[in-house]
């Protein structure tokens, strides 16, 4: 079953593709499906949310998906990731990406899924890359171990924070960003320039981020014991940014430091939104959200905030 679809001109979908993708072509059209089938996606960092995302775009029929993450399977990685068989005989000695690749391949034989060896290192320099779109899921790890030539091969790069990178992801409050402004540009927008009713999750995540940075913690390496220090930092940041402290409820910060693992039902929600936005980006069907998405299982709201500094 080869990729018959891309003949010399690559313009026509094959009968096989039309049959398989029938229901979604009815949503986004044949043109969008063709663009999807030519797109190459890179994913750095495997989490439960990213596993969901990968499933979604493989099902959607992207051209290829490349996975980067050399970690081996741990109990934690198993907990929210359905791509990893729970049999130790199967996963022993394999990296997360190898296992995910094997499962993802089965979902859609028309998509090439491959693994790139490499281990994201220190901070990301946003200007090393020339790519059409970068999506960050939460904060970024460092991908500088790959050259710009490597990134140039991809249409979309999704960077997920994992425990070995610099930042954290939280159980219930997760954000993703589209590269309208870069992530760095976005988070440097002064807080007081935001509208009055702005997602408290955004501020809370920045506080947690700064705390981890200052304490040189790995993302998610937090406990309730850190709460007093986190609250103190919040106060300082609010003063520096001229933001009323009530915009960052202490209860929210408490939740963020208490349980830092992924909450399984939230993974398909964030992975679904992220998949949808990437599909929009590639297929040129609809504008991707601009530019942060927050979901909190506590109140059930899925909110979009424009953090570009020029609303």
């Amino acid at each position: 079953m080869g990729r018959l679809c891309l003949g010399m001109d690559g313009e026509e979908l094959t009968e096989q593709e039309t049959a398989l993708y029938d229901r979604q072509i009815r949503v986004w059209g044949a043109g969008a499906q063709r663009r999807l089938s030519k797109a190459h996606v890179l994913v750095c960092g495997i989490t439960g949310t990213i596993a969901e995302f990968c499933k979604n775009i493989v099902l959607a029929g992207v051209g290829s998906l490349t996975l980067v993450d050399d970690r081996v399977v741990t109990e934690d990685a198993l907990s929210a990731n359905f791509l990893i068989p729970s049999d130790e005989n199967v996963y022993a000695g394999k990296t997360l990406t190898e296992l995910c690749r094997d499962s993802l391949k089965d979902f859609n034989p028309m998509v090439r899924v491959s693994v790139e060896k490499g281990r994201p290192l220190m901070p990301l320099f946003p200007d090393i890359i020339e790519i059409k779109n970068i999506l960050h899921l939460d904060l970024t790890g460092d991908l500088s171990s790959f050259g710009s030539e490597f990134y140039g091969k991809f249409d979309v790069v999704v960077v997920s924070c994992c425990s070995f990178t610099t930042k954290k992801k939280n159980e219930e409050t997760i954000e993703c960003e589209l590269h309208y402004p870069s992530f760095e540009e976005s988070i440097s927008v002064p807080w007081k320039s935001f509208p009055r009713r702005f997602s408290k999750q955004y501020f809370a995540m920045r506080v947690i981020e700064r705390f981890e940075e200052a304490e040189q913690r790995k993302p998610g390496e937090l406990s309730i014991a850190d709460l007093p220090a986190v609250l103190k930092l919040k106060k300082e940041l609010c003063e520096a940014q001229s933001l009323n402290e009530s915009h960052i409820p202490n209860a929210l910060l408490e939740r963020l430091v208490t349980d830092t693992r992924e909450f399984p039902p939230v993974c398909p929600i964030i992975g679904g939104i992220l998949g949808q936005e990437v599909i929009k980006t590639i297929s040129e069907k609809g504008d991707p959200v601009k530019n942060f998405f927050f979901f909190d299982a506590m109140d059930g709201k899925g909110i979009i905030e424009d953090v570009s500094g020029n609303p």
Partner: peptide, 21 residues
Amino acid sequence: IVHAVATTNAIIAGLIVIEAI
């Protein structure tokens, strides 16, 4: 035939589980 994509189903399933809990 109803239009259907994987992402919406995934999101809805997550929301169902949150309500179920």
